[in-house]
Design a binder for these strands. Structure first.
Lengths: 141, 141
DNA sequence: TTAATATATAAACATATGTTAATATTAAAA
DNA sequence: TTTTAATATTAACATATGTTTATATATTAA
């Protein structure tokens, strides 16, 4: 009983849910995740390790970078939850924003060929500009 | 996103999970629930209202007693979670103990014809004795 | 080996949460 | 109406949690 309660507790934080769903879309490293969800490095790191410890993620090291992704053989329980999340969030604002950011991140990396902290600071800045541009357009309309 | 996080938070407490699963078996009033899960009255009351506020329970008043049960038309989301819980807990120690207590409670009520605080204090005492008897038997075996 | 960089961990803090003890509310019985 | 009993709510407290800042670890490059 305690185990399931803890499973739910793991999923009771918006930042962790965001990371989980972003990784459900694509394997990513910490600095990419920082750029996508816009959270500090320690916060991303901490929440990733909580998700990993709970058995949702697996980790892979590649040089200095550490990649995370959804574990291949999730338990039935966790698979059910993932399906529930995909269904429930399919029209969620934050979720859709994050999915767009994953897309942008992939393109940004293809274009710049870089994957490091500095590149992702630039990526975040670029995204902010992109978003504010869209918002002012909306205001005009 | 925040909504689902809060849904999970609601389920991240063992006492709430116990109450939810007990009520999944049978509609019960607060004093019966106290006897079954062995928690204080304010604690039972509080957790019931949290579950009700989140949309898991519906309430019904009958004289001084207040009965709670699982809401009839749960959302798909919540139904999925209930099914998950039933599956995941089917062999859980605490869950099985609680289910036995529900059974005992029903019998106790049939036998005594009473449903009030005093009766349930006696019920709890009786259950404690029953359990300690069983435990000493196990030791002998 | 040293310097630089990506990630993890620790310390410190504020906030949130669960729990108990005390009190309020509500409905029935006297 | 007054009293009793069931449930709800509040206040107070301890613990847990999320967040930031600072620091440690580990890997690559110089």
């Amino acid at each position: 009983m305690k185990k399931i309660a803890e499973l739910f507790k793991t999923l009771s934080d918006v930042n962790r849910l965001r990371l989980l769903m972003v990784l459900d879309r694509k394997e990513l490293c910490v600095c990419q995740l920082m750029g996508i969800v816009g959270l500090s490095q320690p916060l991303v790191s901490r929440n990733l390790s909580i998700l990993a410890r709970m058995g949702f993620l697996e980790e892979r090291k590649e040089g200095k970078l550490k990649f995370y992704r959804i574990k291949k053989n999730l338990t039935d329980e966790k698979n059910t939850i993932m399906e529930l999340l995909r269904r429930s969030l399919s029209e969620d604002d934050i979720y859709l924003q994050d999915m767009e950011a994953v897309q942008d991140c992939t393109e940004f990396q293809k274009r710049t060929g870089r994957c490091d902290m500095d590149a992702y600071k630039k990526f975040m800045k670029w995204r902010m500009e992109k978003r504010s541009k869209r918002d002012t357009q909306k205001e005009v309309v």
